[in-house]
Computed example of a mutant assay.
Amino acid sequence: MSQRFRTPRRALAAAAATAALALPLAACGTGSDGDPDHGSAMGGMHHGATPSASVSASDDGMASMPGMDTASTANGLAAAEDGYAMTSPASALPAGRAAAYRFAITGPDGRPVTDFAVDQTKRMHFYAVRSDLTGFQHLHPAMAGNGTWTAPLATLRPGTWRLYASFTPGSGAGKGKGFVLSRTVKVSGMVMTSPLPQASGTVTVDGYTVAVKGDPMAGMAHQLTATVSRDGKPVTDLQPYLATYAHLTAFHQGDLAFAHLHPETKADGGHGGPTLTFHAEFARSGNWRLFLQFRTGGKLHTAALTLRVG
């Protein structure tokens, strides 16, 4: 840790940020991000569940101070990077019911950040992924005036979950830079893991077949294409979702490294498809679990498939 994070002023500021997170849920307010693009859930999860209070505890060994990275940066596995940190009092969440996860992003001065730039129509993208990649949620939490974010998670299966915050500061030292920070939580109960499905270029969800093509190599930029069809016919009525026709994220098998595959197809009315293109960069080789989200008829669909990266 650098010397600048050892000063009493920094420590007091970080402690104050953590204390603010422990406020009752009602104090978090409703924020300003509620809309139909709220998020997606898989694996027995549902949308719009009423959140319940989370369990307050320290995160599994990760200190809530800026500058204390717990893993390599630039892959979403660190709790802090370049002086920005994801802080939370919760290291556990209840099983069998919806739960609210509260967190804050602190800046280099140790204070909660409240100014965030808009990225794909949102100031914060939040993801919850189970360690075996069988669970996935993509939410857009609400921020209270004190910088506390509240993510209303749908029911989580027992096991270890990694929670990611993807954001861009709107001011300060990190203005304009995209960050992905994460922490882990435990969900109590009997843990039943499932093997990762084998790599496949196609998957069917809600009657739609999604085919992904591309031969990505680790550390290199590549283009991936996703084609959506239904009953063997091309789908051309994709509706806008987060300012594009599909949102694509990926997580590495084993360490859960994060990759956001940026869409190259802009939304222009409700007639998207059937083919969508994405700019893909994967940090390492191996199996990645892809979650592609798209909307038709006002309903959000989430297709999951395994991609092998060389």
Rank of each mutant, 00 (worst) to 15 (best):
T7W: 13
L21N: 04
L23K: 15
L23W: 13
P24W: 09
L25F: 11
A26Q: 12
C28I: 02
G34I: 09
A41G: 15
G48D: 12
T50S: 07
S52Y: 04
S56C: 02
D59S: 06
P66S: 10
G67I: 11
N75D: 13
N75W: 04
G76C: 00
L77Q: 03
A78W: 09
A78S: 15
A80H: 13
S88P: 03
A92K: 01
A100D: 13
T106K: 08
G107A: 15
D115L: 09
A117M: 00
T121H: 08
K122N: 01
H125E: 02
F126T: 08
A128L: 12
R130C: 09
D132E: 12
T134G: 14
F136K: 07
H138C: 12
L139P: 04
H140D: 07
P141G: 03
W149F: 06
L153W: 13
A154F: 06
L156F: 11
G159K: 03
G172T: 13
K175D: 11
K177A: 11
S188L: 04
V191P: 03
T193G: 04
S200K: 10
G201C: 09
K213Y: 01
M217H: 07
R230D: 02
D231R: 10
D237M: 08
L238M: 12
A246T: 06
Q253W: 06
Q253Y: 09
L256A: 08
A259P: 14
G270H: 02
P274M: 05
E281M: 01
G286T: 14
N287W: 08
W288H: 10
F291W: 10
Q293C: 03
F294G: 05
R295M: 01
T296P: 02
K299G: 04
L307G: 00
